[in-house]
């Protein structure tokens, strides 16, 4: 029950020392039809804010940044095979990768659901 959100519109679902990362439903709505997803490789180590991949819609390419530091432990092959999963199920089946956290303290700086919803609401 500890899903956190970033102001880059990613969600981070923490389970022990590993987090599952994806883009939010708001993000997929803004992007439109997603046609290509590039994910990091398993074993890559990321610093918070590093570029971890790219999501391309019919309109444009958008970089995806690591919400937390750590090592990539798993990527969602279903998503690279079927990028539209990020539209149809952004916050569940359309997850991007799992990352083993190297600094759980970083989670404290992320938003909870209520704060994120307020943030999105203010974007209009």
């Amino acid at each position: 029950m500890s899903i956190k959100f970033t102001n880059d519109h990613e969600w981070v679902d923490v389970d022990g020392d590993t987090a599952t990362v994806g883009i939010t439903n708001y993000a997929q709505e803004q992007l439109g039809d997603i046609v290509f997803v590039e994910l990091p490789d398993v074993g890559d180590t990321m610093d918070q804010g590093d570029e971890t991949g790219v999501i391309e819609s019919v309109k444009a390419a958008s970089e995806v940044y690591a919400p937390v530091s750590g090592e990539i432990t798993e990527i969602n092959g279903d998503l690279t095979d079927d990028p539209a999963l990020a539209n149809s199920s952004a916050e569940a089946d359309g997850w991007m990768y799992k990352i083993k956290l190297s600094d759980t303290g970083q989670l404290d700086d992320l938003m909870d659901k209520g704060a994120y919803d307020t943030y999105v609401g203010e974007l209009g």
């Binding site: 439109g32 819609s57 019919v58 309109k59």
Partner: peptide, 11 residues
């Protein structure tokens, strides 16, 4: 630039 159906559906 698009309607609610989206670019892909409109295409």
């Amino acid at each position: 630039v698009q309607y609610p159906a989206g670019v892909m559906a409109e295409h």
